[in-house]
Amino acid sequence: MKPFTYERATSVEAAARAAASVQGARFIAGGTNLLDLMKLQIETPTHLVDVNRLGLDRIEKTEEGGLRIGALVRNTDLAADATVRRDYAVLSRALVAGASGQLRNKATTAGNLLQRTRCPYFYDTRMPCNKRKPGSGCGAMKGVSRSLAILGVSDACIAQHPSDMAVAMRLLDAQVDTVDATGARRAIPIADFHLLPGDTPHKETVLKAGEIITSVTLPGPIGGTHVYRKVRDRASYAFALVSVAAIFGKDGTARFAFGGIGAKPWRTAEGDAAAAQGAQAVAEATLAGARTTHDNDFKRPLVEKTLASLYRQQEARA
């Protein structure tokens, strides 16, 4: 690991200022992704700003009837929260589908949104990777790409977004609340939070230097049946090949968000609009524009089959 200096922030504002004023500074919360990448020298921060004791660990109702989730709420606590289990069950389900018990005890809400891809070429510093080293090329496109994205990809990058939690957040129309070094606050719809790779795959979110996530806010509950189905190579503790977060309404409407297939958590208005026509229509609408490799072409039928399974389960419930 490269040497770095360390400070424990005493306020959100001080944390933002510290991160903005030191070149190469990074926030550290749970650290489960950042430290892993630092050991491999994929991430080489010069300065760590520890935000763990900023008190951003509360879950509270908003005046609008929604839920404000502190940036530092741990995955375990969010999944177990009584309101989340009752009103946003898809979020609980997505959280417990991810990682291991030990990691969920550390991993935070904001950190999860910022976790980096698990593309094997990003992780292997001997390989070219435009995300890790801009301009070095992409080893994945003609390499082992079984796990990688088929939607939102570019000629520069086909990395997948690895999160389960973020897929549920996308489905629930969450909003990411931030503050920057000048004290300016922003509320960013999650649909706009992650960037597609384009020519600059190293830029992954709209956050500016020193801008810190303070909370993630959910709108009021919408009811319906909440499900999260994750298809992976082993039954537990593996990243998704395809995952589907869904809420089925009583009136035949539904909404869907997908993991494992997108450069970011994936949801389309077209996919949701096709809900009444069934799994095949939703899959076709969602996968419009999909670009696959020889290795990951199986994800197209897998999306449809996973949706079909959810529809059958939903019909059995009704």
Binding site: Y6, R8, I28, G30, G31, T32, L35, D36, L48, D50, N52, G101, Q102, L103, N105, K106
Partner: peptide, 11 residues
Amino acid sequence: RINSCLTLAVM
């Protein structure tokens, strides 16, 4: 329970 390898002692 946590993974002690993925956290810094100073934290």
